[in-house]
Amino acid sequence: MRVLQLQVNGDTLETAAPVHWTLLEVLRYRLGLVGSKQGCDKGDCGACTVLLDGKPVLSCLTLAANAVGHEVTTIEGLAPKPETTSEPALDPIQRAFDDCGALQCGFCQPGMMLSARALLNTNAHPTRKEIQQALSGNLCRCTGYTQIVQAVETAVARVSGKTEPDCAWVAELARDRAQIDSAPNEASPSSTTPGPGAPS
């Protein structure tokens, strides 16, 4: 057992774990940060991707002890911390993934978004090929790569104030979102009649 002082998402966290534990195990089972997913556990799938000093690494193949002294960013720390508003803030990549429908089961998303963030940190205007290369260590078994690449392109376009890529489903989703936002909130729990079996 070793006491580890880790810098995670801007906080200094102290925990104790056996020395043969990986960073992924410490994040998930000691620190409760379960956003990093445990997929293949042997470096194939990219679901456990976190940023170490801003660079993407696989936390399933990083010894937790080796991460001491480095800044770890997990998906829980991707969004900027809300300062003045109680509304949850999102990183532009997270917003674009949502708007573009760039997810299905969602398991690969934390890794995908962190790989994308690592790319945009060093290259603010990547080409489609550069995006594909940067995400080539992250597998999506729902085969949503088209939307995922489009989401990164959308995030790039929004941040740089350029025209967003022409994408029919993005416009459709934006319309749906606007419709939901403008509709009276009839479905809120307080205004609905409890159904059979509902707690009283």
């Binding site: 470096g43 990219g46 991707t49 170490l52 660079k55 993407p56 690494v57 696989l58 193949l61 990083t62 790989s115 290369q133 940067a134 080539s136 260590g137 992250n138």
Partner: peptide
């Protein structure tokens, strides 16, 4: 070699 994350490590 491998993928981007593995080349970082």
């Amino acid at each position: 070699v491998a993928g981007p994350q593995l080349r970082t490590q």
